[in-house]
Amino acid sequence: MNKFRKHDSDRLFAGALLSFALILVLFIFVIISVLIERSWKSITTFGFSFLTGQTWNPLRHMYGSLPFLYGTLISSLIGLVLATVVGGGTAILLTQFNHLRFVKLATFLLDVLATIPSVVYGLWGLFVLVPWLRNTGEPFLKATLGFVPLFSGQVWGVGLLAAGLILGIMMLPTIISVVRKLMDQVPQELQDGAIALGATRTEKVRMVVLPYARVGILGAVFLSFGRALGETIAVTMVIGNSPTISSSLFQPGDSLASVLVTQFLEASTHLYLSSLYEIGLVLLIVAVLFHSVSKFLVWRVSERARIA
């Protein structure tokens, strides 16, 4: 009797799980189909040129999303590089030199950082980072690396660089905490093995800790990049909101998520609205593509680690 009832409850549970999963699938399907339906006019009007078009001019009914795509990718990439280098370094410091007294404080501060809403990062960016970039950071880069197109042109403060830096700072707590957890999971015997061979702490990290945690770190980095792609408020506040493509990181740009929030409410014509929906669709596709590529990369690296 008891056995039967247990069996029944299992079936009920499995059924419930299955229906939740179905709802989820349905939900995703609805989102995608609504997006496609709403952006249909734009898709049929512009076709592929929506992705390659560099002009976004509602007045002339010209909608090309390339500047937003460009701004999204470049700013996220800057953020990624910053977060990986600084975040990775901080995580190493915090795990490997954990006898230092400031570690507890740093951990606490990082937890606080992670809870700060993005609009606050945006404000900080606008009032602290942007003026600093305009008065000190960018003029310095221009003076030293100005011959590289990336660091040339008029200095605004706001722009792709500012957006990228803000994104990087926003990604830091996540990257640090994930990388720390990963590095804490590196077995002590392995670390002792390296130390017993005469490795310094740094050599140990390079030889054992990082290789052991690299798949996880790669995953964490991708996770943060995915988050950066969709980040809206903070980016809107510092990117300059100018739908242009410039080789200089000092120049203002715009991002997919940002143009959506700034223009959606006022979009008056059908084509305008439809194009904004297509921007949403492009953002979704970029995120999904990116997610798939990162899954594949993580899979390949872990596979290679298994073979090599």
Partner: peptide, 9 residues
């Protein structure tokens, strides 16, 4: 990143 995207949308 999926979740974030879904939220945005």
């Amino acid at each position: 990143n999926w979740k974030v995207t879904v939220l945005v949308i």
